[in-house]
């Protein structure tokens, strides 16, 4: 076991983890943050995407010990004072989800893309979300929502 200190959604947690514990399971099973879903578990589908120091990362392909000392944001940490994050609000308004399983990862990937200034037009948004799969194939409304949140038409 190894002692790690994680800052998750602004709260510091110290906990002992096994080196082989994947970050997604540390978040879900140790911290109870089950908004981060496990889809493919092979770093393909992106449903487990979280922000690590502000950048999107697939948490099934990162060890909990690698996150020691880093700032993590999960879907639970996006809303502020009961107000949805603008990307969450846009997903709501554009009905950008069907079953909802990919949504947490899709939202966080979009937040990372927008904050990096890369959501410049629809093509860039589609390309920028290539790491996230929606098995309902509801991409059209997802792209609409991200476009609206990014302020591009």
């Amino acid at each position: 076991m190894r002692r790690v200190a994680l800052s998750v959604n602004g709260t510091r947690h110290e906990l002992d983890v096994e080196p082989r514990d994947l970050l997604v399971y540390v978040l879900r099973e140790r911290l109870g943050l089950t908004g981060t879903t496990v889809g493919c578990d092979t770093s393909s589908c992106g449903s487990c995407t979280v922000l690590v120091n502000g950048e999107s990362v697939k948490s099934c392909t990162m060890l909990g010990v690698q996150a020691d000392g880093l700032e993590l944001t999960t879907i639970e940490g996006l809303a502020r004072n009961g107000e949805l994050h603008p990307v969450q609000q846009a997903f709501h308004e554009h009905h950008a989800l069907q079953c909802g399983y990919c949504t947490p990862g899709m939202v966080l990937a979009a937040v990372s893309l927008i904050e990096a200034g890369e959501a410049t037009d629809e093509d860039a948004i589609r390309e920028g979300l290539e790491g996230n799969l929606c098995r309902c194939t509801g991409y059209h409304n997802i792209v609409q929502a991200v476009s609206a949140a990014a302020g591009v038409s």
């Binding site: 770093s43 992106g46 995407t49 690590v52 950048e55 999107s56 990362v57 697939k58 392909t61 990162m62 990937a109 990372s112 893309l113 920028g128 290539e130 790491g131 996230n132």
Partner: peptide
């Protein structure tokens, strides 16, 4: 290479 998430790590 890969996708944005992969390129971040």
């Amino acid at each position: 290479i890969g996708d944005p998430q992969v390129r971040h790590r």
